[in-house]
Design a protein around this nucleic acid. Structure first.
Lengths: 245, 245
DNA sequence: CAGTATCCCTTATGATACTG
DNA sequence: CAGTATCATAAGGGATACTG
């Protein structure tokens, strides 16, 4: 429901629907399947529920998403028109991973990282039964430091409090490095070798941890050998380390 | 320079740069070559010069565009990073032409139509020498009713006042129909047959007019046989004819 | 030609608390 | 679980006039 551009140009008409803040991130969350309101919230933790609700209403009104209610449960899913936005979302992500030069510390949200990871668990690679991984980011504020992934061959849950099960492996990581692994900018093997990520637990399990996750879908996008110039640096408010760089 | 989403997701980082109003339309204008500030304004007539200036500065700061000054002349062009946005802009246009159901009367801007057309003249198809086409949109407010395209084998100019040259052909058109032709939603031949568009002038020239223009680049995108549902209708403020539909 | 300078004002949105 | 209600602030952006 963005304001009109008063142009017949199809690009303009499309952007009227999509250029409001958060809109394409909601679409990103919906790509690939049904989602509950609160699932969307977990992927968009900095978005207020009011605003998420508003964006969903706009997407539904625009014919991009549908709201399905069965009993008390509500699910949102993309319409065929919305599904055709998937390649656009993918292209935006691929562009970003090629050209965005630097992530600020503020971009490194463990909540989102864990939520992302839980969605891309390779369940076939897991041991049978329940596998619990504890993630610890020592440098992070206490409330965001410890996370547990409870994995089974069919399910994956994220907890920010100890669920009480036996922990199979304990991953201790520098948050930035863990994100870089996740984005495909750093190999698991390099991260482990340098000590930026360490895994404690039975050797056979420790060895398998990297195989339990499919990295973010953009991880395989070819990077530029030498980016002409990293993009987006001056766009973010400058942090102290950026100012000194 | 959009506000941060506080996410490492490449889609989010890209949208931080691109999701502000007008930004992708400026990129659209820059796709395909150098542009002067005032050329950009003609393609974006509803954008204030202040805002255009601001967006250009953001695009330059983000490494997406470059500003080249030679003497008094300033040209903007996309960097390699910016050029890689071209497929995204194209995909947005293709999505729009497939799924946007209806254009409001307010979207039918003759200024933009003529500016678009002048950029896609097929100069090789023109007669030698100067060819002047007058366009008249009888139903449009007087100040936007008459337009002249002054075409040569190497140049194309748009005038909103009679340039004084002999007019080779005079095109009288219903504005909406002319836009539909331009978008590939209506054939020239059908428009001429129905009388929505009429061409006066020497028969051989009249016959050739459609060949002088390459339609908008999205014109060839396959449309859906029966769109499940047109998209974007409720997004626009309802016009009287929409309310009665 | 290529922008700036103002000015006002709507609107978007972040934060927080609360409900069927 | 799936949202609404409320509020205050900032800022985005439209319009217009003016300048090197």
């Amino acid at each position: 429901m963005g304001a009109s551009y008063y142009q017949f140009c199809p690009v303009a008409k499309t952007m009227e629907l999509l250029d409001e803040r958060w809109t394409l991130l909601v679409v990103r969350e919906l790509v690939g399947g049904d989602r509950h309101f609160n699932d969307l919230r977990r992927g968009l933790p900095r978005m207020s529920p009011t605003l998420l609700s508003k964006r969903l209403q706009h997407l539904v009104a625009a014919g991009i998403a549908e709201r399905h209610k069965s009993g008390v449960e509500v699910r949102y899913r993309l319409t065929p028109a919305g599904q055709e936005l998937a390649p656009i979302v993918a292209a935006l992500g691929e562009w970003g991973i090629r050209w965005i030069g630097h992530l600020g510390d503020q971009d490194l949200d463990p909540k989102i990282l864990l939520w992302d990871m839980h969605r891309r668990v390779d369940h076939d690679a897991l041991p049978s039964g329940r596998t619990v991984i504890q993630f610890e980011f020592p440098a992070v504020a206490a409330s965001l430091r410890n996370w547990w992934l409870v994995l089974t061959p069919t399910e994956a849950d994220v907890c920010d409090a100890d669920p009480g099960f036996d922990v199979a492996v304990h991953v201790t990581a520098d948050l930035r490095s863990m994100v870089e692994v996740w984005l495909g900018d750093l190999d698991w093997s390099d991260a482990l070798r340098s000590g930026a990520v360490t895994i404690q637990g039975p050797p056979d399990l420790r060895r398998d941890v990297p195989a339990w996750f499919k990295l973010i879908s953009f991880a395989a996008v070819p990077r530029l050998e030498r980016p002409a110039r990293p993009v987006g640096l001056p766009a973010a408010p400058l942090t102290p380390e950026e100012l000194s760089a």
